[in-house]
Amino acid sequence: MAIVDIEGVRKVYHRDSQEITVLDGINLRVPEGEFVALMGPSGSGKTTLLNLIAGIDRPTSGRVMVAGTDLSLLSEGALASWRSHNVGFIFQFYNLIPVLTAVENVELPLLLVRMSKAQRRERALTALRVVGLADRALHYPRQLSGGQEQRVAIARAIVTDPKVLVADEPTGDLDARSAQEILELMETLNKQFRKTIVMVTHDPRAAERAHVQRHLDKGVLTA
């Protein structure tokens, strides 16, 4: 069964009087538990497609079904709530909140869930243990390396136990060794925890880790 089912999606941006078609008639099906890499040159529409899957953007036309929900039918509020339960987002530049410790950053998505402070802390620590950073729970982002920051960001993405993980060039800002570690961690999440992962990457070595590679060019899926 496809956890991501995209059908005839178009995305058009308007800049001044110009109309820019970023995605043009995209059809994509991602089965549950799949690890998909989206590749393509800059401006090909990879990140836009990822944003549509994550529910942080809406298509101009077409249908985006993720985890059994047609996202185009949801209001802004309902979409926000849907995101908090179904999707974990991993950014290229980690985007941790600098004034919060690692564990507080991981706790953030849990603030939206009705649970006690102790339960929240316990779940955040569990997520940090999964990414191997339990001993750095009280460190601030500035006290962590890039690789460690990305691990914390991954812990934040998985703490609500979402069905789908979307990653926008998760290794793009890391050195080779850290990138390897992050990719290994994502493989583990996919294999052991059965997380469906959709990853945008420029890096062929990163893409090799995925089960399926899809290529985008000028808003069209070419392979």
Partner: peptide, 15 residues
Amino acid sequence: RTEIAVLKTLGFPSG
């Protein structure tokens, strides 16, 4: 701005 984007991505409603 980025942090606001992150909060919204995590599911924090705009309100």
